[in-house]
Simulated assay, not measured.
Amino acid sequence: MARSSNDRILILQTSKAPVALSDERFLRSRFDVRTFRIRLAPPVRLLANMAALAVWLCWNLPRARGVFFRFADYYAFLPVFLSRVFRRKSWIVLGGYDAHHLPEYDYGVYGQPLRASIVRYAIRNATAVLPVDQSLYDGVNAYAFDPPRATGIKSLVPNLRCEVRVVADGFDHEFWTPSPGCRKERLVVATASVPQGTSRKSRTRMVALKGVPLLLEVARRMPDVAFAIIGPGRGVLPEGGRVVPANVQLPGYLSPEQLREYYRRATVYAHPSLTEGLPAAVAEAMLCCCVPVGSSVNGIPELIGDTGFVVTQPVIDEWAAAVTHALERGASSRARDRIVALFSLAKRHRLLVDVIEG
Rank of each mutant, 00 (worst) to 15 (best):
D73K: 08
K210E: 14
W319A: 10
R8Q: 06
R149V: 13
S255V: 08
A228C: 15
L102E: 07
M286V: 06
V67H: 05
G96M: 13
S5D: 09
R338N: 09
A331M: 05
R336V: 10
A346W: 06
W176Y: 10
T307N: 10
I304Q: 09
V189C: 11
V268H: 10
V44R: 15
F77Y: 14
G108I: 01
P79E: 00
E174A: 13
R124T: 01
A246S: 14
V315A: 12
N298F: 14
R70N: 07
N60D: 05
P292Q: 13
G139I: 08
S332W: 04
R165T: 00
R329N: 02
D138K: 04
G108N: 04
V80Y: 02
R264W: 10
D133P: 00
V85N: 02
M222D: 04
L287Y: 12
V157H: 04
C288E: 09
L259D: 05
N159W: 03
R63C: 05
V67D: 05
W91R: 05
A285R: 09
W59P: 00
L287V: 11
L78E: 06
V167G: 05
Y107E: 03
R334W: 07
D306V: 01
L40Y: 11
Y262G: 13
Y105T: 02
S273W: 09
A122F: 01
P131W: 00
S117R: 15
A99D: 07
P113Q: 10
I356Q: 04
A76W: 02
P238Q: 10
F26P: 09
V129F: 01
Y97R: 10
H173W: 14
V244P: 13
T324W: 03
L216I: 08
P232N: 05
L61Y: 12
G233N: 06
C182N: 10
Y110K: 08
I123L: 15
P256N: 03
E276T: 08
P147C: 02
K89M: 01
C162F: 00
S255I: 04
D224M: 03
L136E: 02
R45T: 15
N6F: 06
Y97P: 06
C288R: 06
H101L: 12
D169G: 06
T127Y: 02
A128Q: 13
R87W: 04
F77V: 08
F71I: 08
H173G: 13
I229E: 08
M206A: 03
Q13F: 00
E257Y: 11
Q313I: 04
K184Y: 00
A280D: 08
R124S: 06
C162E: 02
R88Y: 12
R329W: 01
A20W: 00
D73L: 03
I118E: 07
A228Y: 03
L250H: 10
